[in-house]
Design a protein around this nucleic acid. Structure first.
Lengths: 211, 211
DNA sequence: GATTTTCTGTACCGTACGGTACGGTTCTGT
DNA sequence: ACAGAACCGTACCGTACGGTACAGAAAATC
C-alpha cells in the first residue's frame, strides 16, 4: 500500500532463482523444470525452494507472475496526433506484438500455462492473460480510443477494434508457433506482416478523412 | 498396399480404445492419460496397448491421428455462385471454425500437442496442424479462390486471404480458451462474431460489384 | 566471539508412472 | 475337439519426481 513495491514481491536472490528456473523452462519445457534441476541450476537447496514458494505450483506461479511484472511501457498514450503518427504507432504495436509472442520466453510461458490449464486451477492462464493485456493490450486500446476521439478512426467499441487488430496481426501464427512448427519468421516478414495488418485495419476502421 | 485401406489404420477394437483414451484426455488432461487408466477405462490390458501402439508416445500420436482422420466434408467446392451464397458459405465456415476450436476435444488435443511441443518431436503439432488445415482450411481456401475467379473477391493470394479471414474470425479467442479462461461463448455470440468477421473480410477482399 | 537464523548439499521416503512378464481365459481356425 | 493365437488382469520392476529431514556451512544479529 506504500508508494512503491506494494506487493511483497521477492528477494533479489529469489528473483535470481526464478530467472534461472525460467531459463530451464525455456530450453527444456515443463518436464525439465523439476525441483531438483532448479535447485542445481540456481545453486540453492530444494528446501529453500519449498520454504520460499510453498510447493511446485507456487513456484510455477511465481515464475509466471515475475515475468508478468516486467511490463514494457510501450507507446505514449495520447497527444493530439496525426493520422500518420497513429498509423505508425499501430505498426509499432504490431511489430512488438509479433516479436513478443514469437519470443522463446513467451512461447515457453504460454505452453506452461496451457499445460496447467486442465489441472486444478492454479490460475496461470489468468495471470498470463492479464499480464498480456496489461503489457500491450490496454495501452493500445487507449490509443485506439484516442484515435477515435480525434476522428481518425470510426470506432464503435475500442475493445472490439483492438480485438480485430489483434486478429489481423497475429492470425494463426501464435498457435502455429505454440505447436512448434515454424522457425521464427525473419524480421523482414515480421515488418511486412505488421504493415499489411495495419493497412487492413485502417481500411476497416479508418475514417475517410482523406476523401 | 492393396486396393483399399491404403493406410494401415487400426482395428475397430483399437479405434474404440483410442476413443476411450480421448475421452479420458478430454476430461482430465494429459496427466490423466496414464497407460493404466486407459487400459482400465477401455477394458483392455496394458500389454495390448504396448503391442498395438508401441509406447505411450505412439499411443498419443494414434489418438491425434485418429481424430485428424475424422474430416468433415464441409461446403461444396465450387459451382458458379452468387456473391450472396459465397458470403453465406464463408459465414458457415466461420461458425464451423469457431464451434470446432471451442469444442472440448479440439481444446484437449491442442493442449496435448502444445504440451509435447517442447520435448522430442513426436510431431503431434504437425499432425494437428495438417489435419486442421485439411479439415477446413484447404477447402475454404479453394472456396476463396473460386470466389476470386468469379470476380466476387479481389484477391492476390488465396492463402493470404484465408489467413486474414482466420484472424478476423478467431482473433485471440483460441488462445484464451486454451489458457482455460472463458466459458464457452453462447451460440448467439458465436453467430454474431461469424457475421461481423465475414462482413469485415468482405470489406477487405470483396470486389465492389455492387457499385 | 558467541548465538541464532538462514542457507546448502545430500540423503531419504512414498508414490506414481512407463514398461514388461506371466498365468489364465476367450476366441479362432481346422 | 483341439491347438494356437490374441487378449485380459494382475503383479512386478526400475526409475523419476515431489516433498521432507538432517547435518553442517554461512551469514547475520547482538
Amino acid at each position: 500500500m506504500s508508494t512503491e513495491s506494494t506487493q511483497p514481491e521477492f528477494t533479489d536472490r529469489q528473483r535470481a532463482v526464478l530467472d534461472k528456473a525460467l531459463e530451464l523452462l525455456v530450453e527444456g519445457g515443463e518436464k525439465a523444470l523439476t525441483t531438483a534441476a532448479i535447485a542445481r541450476a540456481a545453486g540453492c537447496s530444494k528446501e529453500s525452494l519449498y520454504k520460499w514458494f510453498g510447493d511446485r505450483d507456487g513456484l510455477l506461479a511465481a515464475i509466471v507472475t515475475r515475468q508478468a511484472s516486467k511490463v514494457i511501457p510501450g507507446a505514449d498514450p495520447s497527444a493530439n496526433m496525426s493520422k500518420q503518427s497513429l498509423r505508425a504507432a499501430l505498426e509499432e504495436f504490431a511489430r512488438n506484438l509479433l516479436e513478443t509472442i514469437s519470443g522463446d520466453v513467451s512461447l515457453a510461458l504460454n505452453r506452461l500455462a496451457i499445460g496447467q490449464a486442465s489441472k486444478a486451477d492454479t490460475g496461470l492462464g489468468a495471470i498470463l492473460q492479464k499480464s498480456g493485456r496489461a503489457r500491450i493490450g490496454a495501452q493500445t486500446t487507449a490509443l485506439l480510443e484516442a484515435g477515435c476521439k480525434q476522428g481518425h478512426l470510426h470506432c464503435e467499441d475500442p475493445q472490439d477494434a483492438y480485438s480485430t487488430l489483434y486478429g489481423l496481426v497475429v492470425r494463426d501464427q501464435h498457435l502455429r508457433m505454440l505447436l512448434g512448427s515454424d522457425a521464427k519468421a525473419s524480421p523482414k516478414d515480421l515488418n511486412l506482416t505488421a504493415k499489411t495488418a495495419v493497412e487492413q485495419f485502417m481500411k476497416l476502421y479508418g475514417a475517410d478523412t482523406t476523401r
